[in-house]
């Protein structure tokens, strides 16, 4: 009856000027559980909610170290994320080998941006069904980047992608001015509070479903130079203190559903 004739491949425009396959890929990102990223002047933090397929199964990982100085958070198809993650790891390693330095985060993100964009312009290919938050430190300091299946990449101060992420973004927008001067611990707490905003009623952060990843620059004691704190993922008992510290504070929390958050698909 009303079949969409313009969504069979990613190279055909609809008469309205849309490419449906790319939009569907963006939908796949919204199916994934929420991930939040924030960058301050000294640290870049990723926090994520992990999901388990059923009560008896383990939780699917959401945060992945790429190189000493970079890590990613994924929302969407994990298998597509695996391809991108392997590619990023190889590029970082290759850069380290040929130039003897860590790859600038922007360079890395632009590489996967170009790689993903190609998939939206070749017949027989499909876009990646995954969105990424890329956090890392380089010579220019800490960075946070957003990556979308369309190939779009953007540097962010703070961002959230995945199911019900609008709620987290609202929290981040409210507290935007505080992030730049935040310390490491406070930045992680902001991330966890943003994460809590996106949770469905009756669900809460636990040591099982919460992941935290941090990369940073630490001032060394002598001569005021900075040292890189490598990207590290914290799980299980390592995150319990942080979860407890945001257990029942209401700071900056959005009280009611705002924006499109109310109409979005609900996390299982």
């Amino acid at each position: 009856m009303f079949r969409n004739n313009y969504d069979n491949d990613s190279v055909t425009f609809s008469p309205q000027g849309r490419i449906f396959q790319v939009e569907y890929a963006a939908e796949a990102v919204k199916q994934g559980s929420v991930v939040v990223g924030i960058a301050s002047n000294t640290h870049a933090v990723l926090v994520a909610i992990k999901r388990n397929a059923e009560e008896l199964s383990s939780y699917q990982k959401k945060l992945f170290p790429i190189d000493e100085h970079v890590g990613i958070a994924i929302a969407g198809l994990t298998s597509d994320a695996r391809v991108l993650s392997n590619f990023m790891k190889q590029q970082c390693l290759g850069h380290r080998l040929t130039y003897g330095r860590s790859m600038p985060v922007r360079t890395l993100v632009e590489m996967i941006g170009s790689k993903a964009q190609i998939n939206t312009q070749h017949y027989g290919k499909r876009p990646y069904g995954v969105g990424l938050l890329v956090a890392g430190v380089d010579d220019q300091g800490p960075h946070l980047f957003e990556f979308q299946p369309s190939g779009m990449t953007e540097e962010m101060v703070a961002f959230a992608i995945g199911a019900r992420s609008q709620m987290a973004r609202t929290y981040l927008e409210k507290n935007l001015d505080k992030f730049a001067d935040c310390g490491r611990e406070e930045l992680i707490r902001h991330g966890l509070r943003a994460l809590k905003e996106s949770l469905v009623q009756d669900r809460e952060l636990t040591v099982d479903n919460t992941s935290v990843g941090v990369a940073g620059l630490v001032a060394s004691d002598q001569d005021g130079t900075t040292k890189v704190e490598p990207f590290t993922v914290y799980d299980q008992q390592e995150v319990s203190a942080w979860i407890d510290s945001v257990a029942d504070d209401k700071e900056g929390g959005a009280s009611a559903a705002e924006g499109e958050g109310g109409t979005m698909e609900v996390d299982s």
């Binding site: 080998l97 040929t98 130039y99 003897g100 600038p104 010579d139 220019q140």
Partner: peptide, 15 residues
């Protein structure tokens, strides 16, 4: 600050 320095360049040339 982020462009290739002499050490990076030398590493590249050696490869």
């Amino acid at each position: 600050k982020s462009q290739l320095n002499a050490a990076n360049l030398h590493k590249y040339l050696s490869k």
